[in-house]
Design a protein around this nucleic acid. Structure first.
Lengths: 328, 328
DNA sequence: TAATTTTACGTAATCGGTTACATTTAATTT
DNA sequence: AAATTAAATGTAACCGATTACGTAAAATTA
C-alpha cells in the first residue's frame, strides 16, 4: 500500500509537508505543491481512511441502526438515507440489528470505534441507556420513531395513532358497521401498538366491530400465514387493517385464496407506502409516513445539529384495495 | 473513551500485558490475568476496532459490492450474505455502487483502507483491472455472476441462458406458436443479454415469435412503464419473459390494467425467485438462481480460499403466472 | 548590512492498539 | 549455593495518518 511516507520519500520532503499539501493546510511553496501533487497523481495515492480516522478521531460515517432488512420499508429507508448522506459527503455505516439486542449492543459500541459523525436510530431494542451513552460520547443522534426515548438531539416522530385512524376510517366511511381485524407487528412493538389504538379509535367512532388482533413480523409470509389462519375461523370479515405494506400484501393473497374479492367483499389497507403498493392487484391503499424530502433533513440535523423535534403528519393514500380508491 | 492505556494504568501494568491478556497470547500470571479481567469488566472496556485494524493490518470486514438496492434481488442477497458472514464472525462492509462507476472506484479503494478480509463482487462496472488490483493487494475475492472476468479466486457463475431458456420453454410448451416479448435489464447488461439468448433459443426451438425486447432497469416502475407502452401498440401478445421478478410484477400490473388475464390471455415469467413472487396475484412463475446454502459457501470461499469455480444450474419454478403452475 | 518578520518545512508526539525483543524475577537443575 | 532455564512483564517500534511547535531560509524592514 502506498503511504504518506512513500510520497514524502519520493518528493524528498517530510510527511508533514505532504500531509499539509494534501489537505491544503499551512504554507507550502508552489514548487513543492506541484511536485507533490504530481507524484500523488502518478502513483495514484490516496490517504488511508483507517489511519485518518484514528488520527483525526472522526470519520465521514453516519451510523444507521435499523431492526432488519426484511421489511421493505427499511430497505427503502436505507436507500433513501444513503443517497441523502452521499450527497453531503457522508457514507453510511449500516447497522442491521436483525431484531436482536446483542447486535444492537455490538453496533452501539462499534459506532464509537468508527468515530461516526452521527447516528440515525430506528430500531426496537434501543433503550434510554443507549441514547444516554451516545450523548455522553457526543455522538449527534437522530431518532426516528422512538418517541418515548429522551435525548438532546433531533427526533422524527410519527403519529401512528393518527395514521392508522385515517386508514381505518377510510374503510369504515364506506361500510360503517364493518367487522375488522388488525394485523399487527410483533407483540410489544410500540409503533404497532400505537397503530392499534388508532384502529380502535376509528372503530369506536363508527360503532364498528373489531374481531381481534393478529401478530405478524412485518414480512409477506407472516401476513399470509396469519390471515390464512384467521380466515379458516371467520367468514364474517369486512376489512383488514395492516401494520405495514408487506404484511398487507401477504394478507391480500390469503384473502384472494379464500375467494374474497378486494375491495368488494373485503377492504384492506397497508402502511408505509412502499413502492410495491402501486403494483399489486388490486393496488394497495396505504399510509405515507414521510416524504422523500425528509431524508436530507435527517442528515442536516446530524451535521448541523439543529436539534429539532419533528412530528410528521401521516397521510392516507387511497388506492384500489379500499372503496373510494383511485389509480395513481 | 476508555483505552488500553487506561486499563494498564488501573492495573498497574504495561499496555503490552493488558493486550496479551485480552488476546490470550503470551504468558501472564493468574493473578494479573484476574486483576486485569476484573478491571475490564468494571469499566466495560472493549478495544477500539479502528486502532486494531490499523495495527493488525486486517479486519473482520467483508466487502460486498452490489450495483444497487432497488432490485429486491439484491436486498435479499445482502440479507442472506450478511447473516452467513455474521455466523462466521464477519461483518459486512456494504458497498452499494448505485449503478455508478465512480462509486465502484471509491469502494474499491476504501476496501483496502478498511483492511477487508475479502470481497464479494456482484456489480456491473467492475472491470478486469479492478480485479487485478484486488489480487495484487491479496484481497481474496469471490465474484458472483462476473463470468467474463478472470482472477485466481473463487467464482459463482450462473447460466443465464439456460435459466431463461427454461422459463421461456415453460410458456411455449403450452402454446407453441406464441408471440412473446422480452423485458430486459438496461442495455448492455450482460446477464440480461445472456438471458435474452436463452429466450431466443427457446423461441427458435418451438418456432414461436419474438415481438421484440424492452429495456427496463429492474424496478417495478420500469416493468410497468415498458409494458404499458408496449401494450398500447400490440394486442397480439401471448407471453412476457422478464429479466427479474420486480419488473415482472410491474409488467403483470400493466397487463392487468389492459384487461388481460394471466395466464389465460397471456403468460408471464419472472427471474430470481424473490420472496414477493409467492404473494402476487397470480403467483409468479420464476427462475431460481441459487439456493440459500450458497451464502455460507461464499463466505467459506473467502476465508478458506478454496478458489473454486461454481456453475449454478438455474431451476424453473412454476407458479400461477404460466400454465402448468401450481401453488407452493 | 544587521535585525526582524514571513514563509517553508522538518521533528516528534499523538491517535489506540500489537508485538518482537529485552529484562527482571521465579523456578529448576546441578 | 551457583548456574541454568522458564515464566512474567516491560520497553519501544510500528501501523498511516495529523498537527503543535521549532528552526532554517527567504523576504522585508530599518
Amino acid at each position: 500500500m502506498t503511504t504518506l511516507k512513500d510520497i514524502a520519500h519520493l518528493a524528498g520532503v517530510s510527511t508533514a509537508t505532504v500531509s499539509r499539501v494534501m489537505n491544503g493546510k499551512g504554507e507550502a511553496s508552489p514548487q513543492t505543491i506541484q511536485k507533490i501533487q504530481k507524484i500523488i497523481q502518478q502513483v495514484n495515492y490516496h490517504p488511508n481512511r483507517t489511519a485518518k480516522m484514528l488520527s483525526a478521531q472522526k470519520s465521514n460515517l453516519i451510523a444507521l441502526l435499523i431492526p432488519n432488512l426484511r421489511n421493505p420499508f427499511f430497505s427503502e429507508l436505507v436507500q433513501q438515507i444513503e443517497q441523502a448522506a452521499n450527497r453531503q459527503g457522508y457514507q453510511i455505516y449500516l447497522c442491521n440489528s436483525e431484531d436482536n439486542r446483542q447486535k444492537v449492543e455490538y453496533y452501539l459500541e462499534t459506532m464509537q470505534d468508527n468515530y461516526v459523525a452521527g447516528a440515525i436510530i430506528d430500531s426496537l431494542f434501543v433503550e434510554q441507556m443507549d441514547l444516554d451513552q451516545l450523548e455522553q460520547r457526543h455522538i449527534p443522534t437522530v431518532t426516528i420513531d422512538r418517541t418515548h426515548l429522551k435525548h438532546p438531539y433531533a427526533a422524527l416522530n410519527v403519529d401512528h395513532l393518527q395514521g392508522e385512524y385515517l386508514a381505518t376510517k377510510s374503510i369504515l366511511q364506506h361500510q360503517k358497521q364493518a367487522q375488522l381485524v388488525f394485523l399487527s407487528g410483533p407483540v410489544g412493538e410500540q409503533s404497532s401498538q400505537d397503530r392499534y389504538q388508532g384502529y380502535l379509535k376509528a372503530i369506536q367512532e363508527f360503532g364498528a366491530t373489531s374481531l381481534g388482533i393478529l401478530y405478524g413480523d412485518f414480512t409477506y409470509e407472516s401476513g399470509y400465514q396469519q390471515m390464512t389462519q384467521f380466515l379458516q375461523q371467520h367468514t364474517d370479515l369486512q376489512g383488514v387493517v395492516c401494520s405495514n405494506d408487506a404484511m398487507a400484501v401477504g394478507a391480500l393473497r390469503a384473502c384472494q385464496d379464500h375467494q374474497l374479492r378486494i375491495p368488494q367483499d373485503l377492504q384492506l389497507v397497508g402502511y408505509d407506502n412502499t413502492r410495491l403498493g402501486k403494483f399489486t392487484n388490486p393496488r394497495l391503499s396505504t399510509v405515507q409516513q414521510f416524504g422523500i424530502n425528509y431524508f436530507d433533513l435527517i442528515i442536516d440535523e446530524l451535521t448541523k445539529q439543529q436539534k429539532q423535534q419533528y412530528w410528521l403528519t401521516p397521510q392516507f393514500i387511497a388506492r384500489e384495495s379500499t372503496y373510494g380508491g383511485k389509480n395513481d
